[in-house]
Design a binder for these strands. Sequence first.
DNA 1: TCTTATAGACACCGATCTGTTTACTTAACG
DNA 2: CGTTAAGTAAACAGATCGGTGTCTATAAGA
Lengths: 211, 211
Amino acid sequence: MTEVEKGPQGRRRGRGARERILSASQQLFRDQGINRTGMDQLCAEAQVSKRTAYQHFASKDELVAEYLRRFDPDVMPGVFDRTDLAPRERLLAAFEMPASTPLCPYIAAAVELHDPQHPASRYARDYKTAIAARLTETAREAGATNPEQLGEQLALLLDGASARTRVLNSDSFPTAAAIAAVLIDNAIPAARQPGDERSTAGSASVPAGGR
Amino acid sequence: MTEVEKGPQGRRRGRGARERILSASQQLFRDQGINRTGMDQLCAEAQVSKRTAYQHFASKDELVAEYLRRFDPDVMPGVFDRTDLAPRERLLAAFEMPASTPLCPYIAAAVELHDPQHPASRYARDYKTAIAARLTETAREAGATNPEQLGEQLALLLDGASARTRVLNSDSFPTAAAIAAVLIDNAIPAARQPGDERSTAGSASVPAGGR
DNA sequence: TCTTATAGACACCGATCTGTTTACTTAACG
DNA sequence: CGTTAAGTAAACAGATCGGTGTCTATAAGA
């Protein structure tokens, strides 16, 4: 704090308590929720004294915000940075989530914290905006007539699938993927030019979630 | 508890403490969330002693479950029981939510309680299933080729709009409505014969949420 | 080696949580 | 009117909450 930033990998001297705290946060907040995870339990799990924890984070609120910031800082690079996929397939790939994926932590935070002014809620908003922007950008690459609209729509589908998966306790992403396929096809006007990709990936035609 | 059911309007003699408790629950759980509303505050708001509250509800968990059961027992009758609308318009009407609508309490409960076995979580699941069934039934009336699929898809859109509205702090229902319009048109095969078309409802063609 | 930032152990604080208890008041009905 | 159930007030349990104070140990950099 005094002189040098202890950014991402920045244990300057110590033994990396900060990292252990954040990694314990990931596990506990995911498994139990934010409100139901006390600092005592969190510190025990991280094998860190409370004193140390509060030297790294001014408050639990700040820890929660940092936990969200660390969660996916590059906004799904595993999907959007795949150069082996055409834009259209990248859009669809965003819906291929492993069946065990827990509720999106940004949604969880916004609901649990319940205060739109909470730093974590603010960041959740930023993150969701960034996801929509990524989708929009990809939609534009894919040649959508109204990329902003398609991006926002796909973002809504992702959030719907995540929330619904939690409530129903069963995977809703296939349904969302099916809707996405329809929207994407409706939004790309020319559809297929001769010799263009999209047929290259073959499987693209039917994610056909349906359930 | 002893002999007579004190159901919905069942204050047998007293002054209706149970109703006041449930109505205070509605307000406080909506405004503050479930976890952040203590029984002390709730009882104060309801002008009820804690003793009385715990005579009516064995635990806060049970109160939360009852609060959900009371919330919308008839599953959106204001939308689905409208005889003045054609089935297709009823489906679209489900997306016309006032901009100030808070997060769906069933989603909120499932996220806040975080335990799928909690009675309130179980009821939330039942409710979401009931909504999907209502949508499916209406989709069937509207002549959809695969009403189950359309029902589930529209249900996902509703949940997505609700969750996203909370996270972004701005109304997402228009976007969901635009998607719904596309899905509905795609799902009803005969759709428009020459001369006739969805122009009957005028606005149908472009809810065009976009944002 | 010496300095100093980092980490740990541990007791402790006041507040709040769900839930219980005791002793008293009130309202409805026969 | 008197009985009786429904309600109130308020203290109390025991746990847990987020957060501190203090004092010691250690590891890294100079």
